[in-house]
Write a protein that binds this DNA or RNA. Structure first.
Lengths: 332, 332
DNA sequence: ACAGTTCACTTAATCCATTCAGCGAACGTG
DNA sequence: CACGTTCGCTGAATGGATTAAGTGAACTGT
């Protein structure tokens, strides 16, 4: 590749012996232009030879929008799932010609609007419900907002992480029910930042219980402390509860640890199932039964959502893979 | 804030009754311009009232560089530390007027160069050593490269994660030595992607052992499997080893779990110390002694590094806080 | 042979912020 | 009072890509 700092469309035009307009038409494959193959070849060759890449600022200025996809980082703690999603989404975005930029301004709406003004991103992906003022501004300025929380018109495709939480709870309970458990507890963090998901997962669990004619799920919040969790396990056992769905693997493993303090072991005294299938779940003692989230499929479909929202037909259809799968190990 | 899609400097100029040049001078506080306070006030008021924010594309086009800071995501698995750093760096960058964009193209050098060409970022932060061709291009095009691996001229300030790994190993061994351990094992992953860090941490451990006149550290690679790790613990004990530094908390907790399979417990049979101080370390059984990484200070100083590399004097001096601190719990 | 099309391009305007060069008025100095 | 300087501003150029509006030549149909 050429080492010269700046190669513009004009350079390519000069080398190819055509005008800058022609270069643009050829390189963007602008429809409705009649340009013979020979000329196209010359332009492409010149661009290749010079290592020409269009400068984003020029393009953005003209088009009124950049190639940035802004991901508003959720307020909740970045666990393994979000971390991994960042990596996958970055890759997915870049393979489609977008650049993923991160933003933390989900709560500061004025600042968010100001940032959208300057950046003029192609799309904003948010895991929050953004306020109407932002939606109004986005509409006026041509920024597409893709919410991963919103109710979708077509529930078959695309990504709705609230819906996904419900599936998780549903799956946990159905798995436990299959193993013969009927009195089930639900353990979730006392962290307000994850409240929405905790409630989603609990809701899925509750409804699965109802559908399966099980007694109502007992839900409990706790701080992440071994002793307290161990005590809870003892208490639950006294109430005849035989299995627990934990909000995620961290909590499941903490519960396992607390149980050990009181001489209890999974699945014998209390079966435990987590969610996220973190690396350490496989090496917990006992190895933790969990729910694996197909983040690759999530990321892929999310970028398809973005493209559709931008009016581009995705080149590869949505990944139909199941988003959540049970990973059965010893703890339940 | 105004809801109109596009407010340009010209709009502000019109409202304030001055020229676009004056608006730019006032809003950028351009030095060497004599503009009375009264006019400045008028311009600022107009900008405020209209909700004017300069459009990045225009600015970038003129200045030749954008406000993007491109972070080349490391090839290694995104653990809790990287995930958290992303969040902190995003925040830190945005508070200084930059936007953090992620890139995955650390290995594809042609693609990386092409991306730098289009994006014209202010700086690139990399955790790899980038090839010379990229450095040459960056120099020619005015992109600043901040490498988090490189040896620094002034070891007092700034961020060098390779140096940080060495500190981690050093700290682990000194802590164990203080508790009376002398024969120490080092456990690290068989994942090539973290090799550089594993070696750095081991090196720190080895040198601490030498400095303290301890016998040489025994290092071992393993897959993340309970049985194998348990067997290793047994083997080490037969060799008289009484304490183990693990590459990180995941491995430490897996080792703890493997030990339990063979009836061994920390710290009695084998003391175990991890690194990262993940959320679950506190609730492991026994609670895991670990090394906490001050990622806030890392991120802050890293952005200071970026600013200095860009020729801006950081408004707040480097955070002098210790980057690594021991969190003593029961496992060692 | 002449109007009407199509082809293969080019010209020039546009997006927005920044900044160099400069201009008229006021001020200061000898 | 003439000259130089500073003040307070403005005009116009600049950066790179896109695209509406053309232009001259070749071609088609009658």
């Amino acid at each position: 590749m050429n080492t010269q700092a700046k190669i513009t469309g004009a350079d390519v035009a000069r080398v190819a012996g055509v005008s800058r307009a022609t270069v643009s038409y050829v390189l963007n494959a602008t429809p409705g232009q009649s340009i013979p193959e020979e000329t196209r070849r010359k332009v492409k060759a010149a661009a290749e030879q010079l290592g020409y890449v269009p400068h984003m600022a020029g393009r953005t200025l003209r088009r009124g929008r950049s190639d940035l996809i802004v991901w508003i980082l959720p307020d909740w703690p970045i666990g393994s799932a979000v971390g991994e999603s960042i990596e996958l989404l970055t890759r997915e975005a870049s393979s489609r010609g977008f650049t993923l930029a991160m933003l933390n301004e989900g709560n500061d709406h004025n600042r968010l609007e100001a940032t959208l003004r300057t950046l003029a991103p192609a799309a904003v992906v948010s895991m929050h419900r953004l306020p109407d003022s932002i939606h109004r501004f986005a509409k006026a300025s041509g920024v597409t907002i893709v919410s991963m929380m919103g109710r979708r018109t077509d529930p078959e495709t695309g990504v709705d992480i609230l819906q996904a939480s419900i599936s998780v709870g549903d799956m946990q309970v159905r798995y436990l029910a299959e193993r013969g458990h009927s009195r089930i507890g639900y353990l979730y963090p006392d962290d307000v930042r994850v409240k929405e998901f905790a409630i989603g997962r609990y809701k899925g669990a509750r409804e699965a219980a109802k559908a399966l004619d099980l007694p109502a799920i007992r839900k409990r919040t706790m701080p992440l402390q071994r002793e307290r969790l161990g005590e809870l396990a003892v208490e639950w056992r006294e109430q005849g509860i035989t299995a627990v769905c934990a909000y995620n693997d961290e909590w499941a493993m903490a519960l396992l640890s607390g149980m050990r303090m009181f001489g209890l072991e999974a699945p014998h005294h209390l079966a435990v199932i987590g969610c996220d299938n973190v690396l350490t779940a496989a090496v917990a003692s006992p190895p933790l039964t969990s729910i694996d989230l197909n983040l690759l499929a999530y990321s892929f479909n999310m970028m398809n959502d973005v493209e559709r929202a931008l009016g581009i037909e995705p080149s590869t259809p949505d990944d139909p893979a199941a988003f959540e799968t049970i990973v059965a190990r010893e703890s339940a």
